[in-house]
Simulated assay, not measured.
Amino acid sequence: MSDQPGVQAVQPPGHTLPIGKYSPAVSVPLDGGRRMVFVSGQVSSDAEGRVIGPGDAALQAETVFRLLSEVLAEAGGELSDLVSVVVYLADMADFAAVSAVRNRVLGDPAPSSTLVEVSRLAIAEHLVEISGVAVVGEGR
């Protein structure tokens, strides 16, 4: 990212390492000391890549939002800075469980949101993946 001045990869300590060439998040400078943070899809895994909560969509959603929060904190933000999220579900039957967690952890105004059912996530035991975009810093 050296071609883009001020653009920084965000990698919280102890966070799951990417399984390919991507960053958990990328922080892009804006005017007024603000930054736009693009958070890659987070899944329910520990730092060693082990799935947390196999078969439990609510627990996986809790874990995913905790990981999103950790990534945003590393970039100087928090969940309330999210302006957009995309939720990927392996099974629409898990919508209510995941939605209940989402509605509890996200504040007002709620971010824009897209929900997509996919045939399978990268690791079969993952039931939910969530990515997001946040604006952090001065003048939120």
Rank of each mutant, 00 (worst) to 15 (best):
P111F: 10
I19P: 02
H126E: 07
E125Q: 15
S80I: 07
A47I: 05
M92R: 08
A110D: 03
Q8D: 12
L89N: 01
A96Y: 07
V105Y: 09
S2Q: 13
F38T: 07
Q60R: 04
P24K: 06
E48D: 15
P18K: 12
P29W: 14
D31G: 09
S69C: 03
R34D: 03
V133G: 04
S119N: 07
V105H: 05
L89A: 05
D91E: 11
I130G: 04
R34I: 13
L67P: 00
V116W: 10
F95M: 15
R102Q: 14
A93Y: 10
F38E: 06
V136Y: 03
S44R: 09
M1I: 07
M92E: 08
Q60K: 06
V135R: 12
A25L: 02
V118S: 05
I19E: 08
G137Y: 12
N103A: 13
Q60W: 01
I19W: 13
Q8K: 12
A122Y: 08
P109V: 08
V26S: 04
P18A: 11
E125D: 14
R102G: 03
F38V: 09
V86W: 05
L106H: 06
V83F: 10
E117M: 15
A25H: 02
A97P: 01
T114G: 10
S113C: 09
R102M: 12
P54N: 12
V135K: 11
H126D: 05
G20H: 14
M36E: 12
Q4L: 15
A96Q: 11
E78D: 14
V98Q: 00
L68H: 00
V51R: 09
E138M: 13
V118N: 08
D56G: 01
V128N: 03
E125A: 15
S84F: 15
L67I: 03
R140G: 06
E117H: 01
E48F: 14
E117V: 04
A9K: 14
V101N: 01
A75N: 04
R35A: 07
E138G: 09
S45G: 04
A9C: 10
L17M: 13
A100T: 06
P5G: 06
